[in-house]
Write a protein that binds this DNA or RNA. Structure first.
Lengths: 136, 136
DNA sequence: AATTATTTGCAACTTACTTGCAATTTATGA
DNA sequence: TCATAAATTGCAAGTAAGTTGCAAATAATT
């Protein structure tokens, strides 16, 4: 059984070709992806655009993927991996490619920053921007 | 002379009612704002929506405002204040209101994180999420 | 295998934002 | 200060990412 199929079953989602293809794509790439990235694949030829969007919503609701901020107008998503800690991304200022950074240990200091203005911290989002090796 | 008018002249932008109204609104509020916020004001009644968008672009190009990430589908902008250092925002998870946090001293550790994956840091974006005093 | 529940493809729709153009307003400079 | 040039505005129509209704197809359940 494919890994994607196991995940779908575990999350009680019907196993369809569209979903398997889409989820395998996320698993294979293992980085934030938007519909733009998926449109480039041959898999997309066999899948309706609305199915893509509907399945992305289902995956997000099921906690399989999460949305991440982007440098363009297309929403990006990445796999939620339980064995991976909360982490951040670095986006190339030149080519806009996105890479995952290793674990983040910043919540403690952020809690302090939040409480200074009377907020109770529930989470944070951090994106670094830089020039990637290929563009340097 | 209004403060907004002085800014517009300094940036060599024509001084029009729309621009003065819009910029005064940013100055008065002094927090990230989207077209949603502006639509709530009576000023908006006298101003075309396309003027709002066009002037926001002009202001951004002139470095008067900058765009900030949002929790909804409307783009938000905030005043660029030279006397204010690079800083971040905290967004209420309940009411989605946005507040500015004080100065950020994180670039040094971020540079290290970036160089670990071979990137040269050019900037970063950080949003905290929490529950604001009003919603608590 | 038959029934029920879910998903898919398609086309039409929604909506934040953009754009072309003619009319109006603002800046320029004699 | 007034005529001219340049920029901005209002309006209506257009874009494009994402959504939705519905009937047909596929998957889950018994």
């Amino acid at each position: 059984m494919k890994k994607s199929e196991a995940i779908l079953r575990e999350k009680r989602l019907s196993v369809t070709k569209s979903r398997v293809d889409l989820l395998e794509f996320f698993i294979k790439k293992n980085q934030p992806l938007s519909i733009l990235d998926f449109k480039k694949t041959k898999l997309f030829k066999e899948m309706n655009e609305s199915s893509f969007y509907r399945n992305v919503i289902k995956f997000e609701e099921a906690g399989i993927i999460r949305s991440v901020p982007t440098a363009n107008e297309y929403q990006s998503y990445e796999l939620v991996q339980d064995d991976l800690h909360h982490h951040h991304h670095i986006i190339c200022s030149a080519c806009k490619s996105v890479k995952c950074l290793t674990e983040c240990g910043l919540d403690k200091s952020f809690s302090k920053m939040a409480s200074k203005v009377g907020y109770k911290l529930t989470g944070h989002s951090l994106e670094l921007y830089g020039i990637c090796p290929d563009c340097a």
